[in-house]
Design a binder for these strands. Structure first.
Length: 470
RNA sequence: GCUCCCAUCGUCUAGCGGUCCAGGACGUCGCCCUCUCACGGCGAAAACAGGGGUUCGAGUCCCCUUGGGAGUACCA
């Protein structure tokens, strides 16, 4: 049977990095084995599910490039099928109606906890209960009492659960809607899922699901429970830890492939390798090699990876993503140099696209004011002469190239008997507004003669104005 | 409480009984390069949670302790 995997989020929020990694593992497994990857939306909890969340998840998957072969399949559209299976279970005696009220169940739990027992349903309606006035029954699965369920997990190995530890779980609420453990089983079965790859917070659900599958006479899929991702404090990753939404990483200037690369290395490795292209991930990844222990999300390393991808990816590709950030700054790339050229000169000095956009804004529009510290240090009266020299030279330059510009800067330094830094830095602040930019000759070449001239004039005027103001 | 899971540098990890006075990466700290910021190069500090076994030999296998995590819903 050909491999079929799925990612089945419940739409109660955005796609977070933990879910994204589970989806990635599942996607990789399908791709590696030439199988199919299914997206299923588990929206049976109508109270908590929202269409916004569905869209956010879809958007996240798209940005990451985790394309699905089937779906999205919505569970809310499959209620008839679930009802059919529930009826089947009822008919075969593997399920029964339970008339206990929520209040009774709560009391039962409280008493059990008081006796330091594991809280579980006591099975009072199991032998068959009489309908009660005013009580809409729930339907429970009749879990085997004897024996044990052995989960042969691809990442955990064998896990044994005694049936005596399990109780009769509810598969249909009193309003008739199916619950999670039932829908997962039916869906995975109907969709022919061969490998259930999911977070290890589902381990405890697995034996129950296996029992239902067995009652249905179905063949079991392979299970792989991947460890969770923790925040810096060792607790399960959540909003408290900062950016957890996949789309927030786009906002923060990350390349999707950098995030993917970071995620795949969290709980998985291939020797000493750190960098993996998508194709390499597909060929090298093996779900069996995934670690058992939970791992902590480390933003610093993600930043490093992002920088690696910014530096080593095709500049045109980076430029494409950079344009999004430029848009957020209200910059239209037609107002300055080609974005690709900007990427080429900025990529080794910025770790995120946000940073790159901010540090490159001066190529496209005038800045409002100088960086205070840099101006104080570099835009001093002593710099005026050299700036004026270069201004004249630049105006007269027949050829506006970095080589010619470089020559002017060097010659001015020699003429004024100053170190290159004493010349280049004031010039840099004058044209870029701050102390950081690519090499000055390249910066000016990209900026263009017109803007260079204007900005040097502006700087000279500014310095002189400072002098008279004090 | 009960059930299940986990445990190598601060973090991600290599290690699948001897080749480990434990290797790589991020980060940190030095030095070099340098017109700024970076890139890059070189180097340093930094870990087998503890205790019992098994074995000629244990980071690697078993048990216990400790510490973490998950589940324990008419949520998923």
């Amino acid at each position: 049977m050909s491999t079929r995997t799925r990612f089945a989020p419940s739409p109660t929020g955005y796609l977070h990095v933990g879910g994204a990694r589970t989806a990635l593992f599942s996607w990789l497994h399908a791709r590696k084995h030439g199988g199919r990857f299914i997206l299923r939306i588990e929206d049976t909890d109508i109270e908590r599910s929202t269409i916004e969340s569905v869209n956010a998840i879809l958007e996240g998957m798209t940005w990451l490039g985790l394309e699905y072969d089937e779906g999205p399949i919505y569970q809310t559209e499959r209620f008839d099928r679930y009802k059919e299976v529930i009826q089947q279970l009822l008919d075969s005696g593997d399920a029964y109606r339970c008339y206990c009220t929520k209040e009774e169940l709560e009391r039962m739990r409280a008493e059990q906890m008081g006796r330091k027992e594991k809280p579980r349903y006591n099975g009072c309606c199991r032998p068959g209960a009489e309908p009660r006035e005013g009580v809409n029954p729930v339907i429970r699965f009749r879990n085997p009492v004897e024996g044990a369920v052995i989960v042969d997990d691809l990442v955990r190995g064998k896990i044994v659960f005694n049936n005596s530890e399990l109780d009769d779980l509810i598969i249909a609420r009193s309003d008739g809607t199916p619950t999670y453990n039932l829908t997962v089983v039916v869906d995975d079965l109907d969709m022919g899922v061969t490998h259930v790859i999911r977070g290890d917070d589902h381990i405890n659900n697995t034996p129950r699901q296996i029992n239902i599958l067995k009652a249905l006479g179905a063949e079991l899929p392979q299970y792989a429970h991947v460890p969770m991702i923790l925040g810096d404090d060792g607790k399960r990753l959540s909003k408290r830890h900062g950016a957890v939404s996949v789309m927030q990483y786009r906002e923060d200037g990350f390349l999707p492939e950098a995030l993917l690369n970071y995620l795949v290395r969290l709980g998985w490795s291939y020797g000493d390798r750190e960098l993996f292209s998508l194709d390499e991930m597909i060929s090298l990844f093996d779900i069996k090699d995934v670690n058992k222990a939970a791992s902590t999300f480390n933003s610093e390393k993600l930043l490093w990876l992002n920088h690696q991808y910014i530096m080593n990816s095709d500049p045109a590709h980076v430029a494409h993503h950079l344009s999004y950030q430029m848009g957020r700054l209200d910059i239209d790339p037609v107002d300055g140099p080609e974005l690709v050229e900007v990427v080429k000169v900025q990529r080794e000095r910025t770790k995120t696209l946000v940073e790159m956009a901010q540090n490159s804004a001066f190529f496209y529009r005038d800045f409002d004011c100088y960086d205070e510290k840099a101006a104080r240090k570099n835009l001093k009266p002593a710099a005026v002469e050299a700036l004026a020299d270069m201004l004249d030279a630049f105006k007269a330059l027949p050829d506006w190239s970095s080589e010619a510009i470089h020559k002017v800067v060097v010659e001015t330094a020699e003429l004024r008997e100053l170190k290159l830094g004493k010349i280049a830095q004031p010039l840099r602040v004058a044209v870029a507004g701050g102390p950081v930019s690519p090499p000055i000759d390249i910066t000016l070449e990209l900026l263009g003669r017109e803007r260079t001239v204007q900005r040097i004039e502006r700087a000279i005027a500014w310095i002189e104005a400072q002098g008279t103001a004090v």
